[in-house]
Design a protein around this nucleic acid. Structure first.
Length: 270
DNA sequence: ATAAGTGTTGCGCA
DNA sequence: CTGCGCAACACTTA
C-alpha cells in the first residue's frame, strides 16, 4: 500500500537519481495499465530527458522534455533502478536510460503508468482531480476543506479528491492519534478535534518518512523502509492492548473497508 | 486445495 | 452530496 510517505520517499529518490538522464527505450508488458496506446506512450517518452520528479498524493509525476510520466502503484509495487543486466524477474513497465541503467516498475494490482503531453498535465484527469497533499495544508485550509461537509471523517480522509495521500493503512493510527472514531460525523467535530486530526496526520506521516517509509515496500535501490509493524499503534493489532489505555483493540467494518480502533480512546458519541 | 480477504480507484445507483 | 457495491484480477492466509 503505497501511501503518501512511500510516494514521498520514492519521488525524492527518483529526483536525485533520474534528473538529467535520457530515456533511450521504453518497454510495456501490460498495456492495460496505460492511458494511451503503447505506441503513443513509447513515442512520447523515448528520447526524453528527465527534468524533475514530484508527487501529488499517491501519484509519482516525472516531468521530461517530451511530456509527463505518471505512476500510481495501486495496492503495492516497486520502482527499482538497476543495471540493465540485473533486471528483476517481473516488471510491467521498463524505462531504459542512456547510461545502461533501467527503471523497472512492477505493481501487483491496480496500478497505472500514464503519459501526458508537454504542458498538458492539467488534462490528466486522475491527477488533476486530486485535493491538496495531506502534508501541505495549513490549519486554516484544513478547516476550510471540512467546512460544510456532512459525511464521516474516515470517508473524507480516504477521499483523494478532498485531501490527497491518505490510504487505509495509515488512517487507523491517524484517527487513533486524534482520538477520533472513524465513523464520527464531520459536523460533530470540534475545533480542537480538527486541529488534533491535522496534527495526527503530520505526526504519523513524518515519522514514517523519517524512517524511509513502510517496511513492506522497497526503495529505488531495493532496500525495505524502516517503518514497520512495530511502529503501528492500533492498525492491524486486533486483540492486542491499546498502547494508551490497555483496552483491547478491535477490528470493525466501516463501509467497504475495515478499521482498527481502541473502543475506549475512540468512542463514537455523536 | 479452494476461497476469502486485501493496501487503490472510478463508476453506477439508491 | 453521500454511502455503498462492484469491477479491475495478484498474492497471502485460513
Amino acid at each position: 500500500m503505497p501511501e503518501l510517505p512511500e510516494i514521498t520517499c520514492r519521488a525524492r529518490e527518483m529526483k536525485k537519481e533520474l534528473v538529467g538522464r535520457t530515456i533511450t527505450a521504453v518497454e510495456v508488458n501490460q498495456p492495460k495499465c496505460l492511458n494511451v496506446p503503447v505506441e503513443t506512450f513509447v513515442a512520447g517518452l523515448v528520447g526524453a530527458e528527465v527534468l524533475d520528479v514530484t508527487h501529488h498524493g499517491k501519484w509519482l509525476i516525472s516531468e521530461t522534455t517530451r511530456g509527463y510520466f505518471l505512476l500510481n502503484l495501486g495496492m503495492g509495487g516497486e520502482v527499482l533502478l538497476v543495471p540493465r543486466e540485473k533486471l528483476p524477474e517481473k516488471w510491467r513497465v521498463r524505462l531504459d536510460f542512456a547510461d545502461g541503467e533501467s527503471l523497472a516498475i512492477h505493481f501487483w494490482w491496480f496500478g497505472y503508468a500514464h503519459y501526458a503531453s508537454p504542458g498538458k498535465l492539467g488534462e490528466h484527469a486522475m491527477s488533476a482531480a486530486l485535493g491538496p497533499n495531506a502534508l501541505d495544508l495549513p490549519l486554516g485550509a484544513f478547516r476550510e476543506l471540512l467546512a460544510g461537509r456532512r459525511g464521516r471523517i474516515k470517508s473524507f480522509l480516504l477521499d483523494q479528491k478532498r485531501i490527497a495521500g491518505i490510504g487505509n493503512a495509515y488512517v487507523h493510527d491517524i484517527l487513533f492519534r486524534a482520538k477520533l472514531h472513524p465513523l464520527r460525523g464531520i459536523p460533530t467535530l470540534s475545533d480542537d478535534e480538527i486541529a488534533a486530526l491535522r496534527k495526527a496526520i503530520r505526526t504519523e506521516f513524518q515519522r514514517s518518512i523519517r524512517k524511509g517509509a513502510a517496511a513492506y515496500e522497497l526503495d529505488l535501490y531495493g532496500k525495505p523502509g524502516r517503518f514497520s509493524g512495530k511502529d503501528l499503534l492500533v492498525g492491524y493489532r486486533e486483540g492486542k492492548p491499546c498502547p494508551t489505555c490497555g483496552a483491547t483493540i478491535e477490528k470493525i467494518k466501516t463501509g467497504s473497508t475495515s478499521s482498527f480502533i481502541c473502543p475506549t480512546c475512540q468512542p463514537l458519541n455523536d
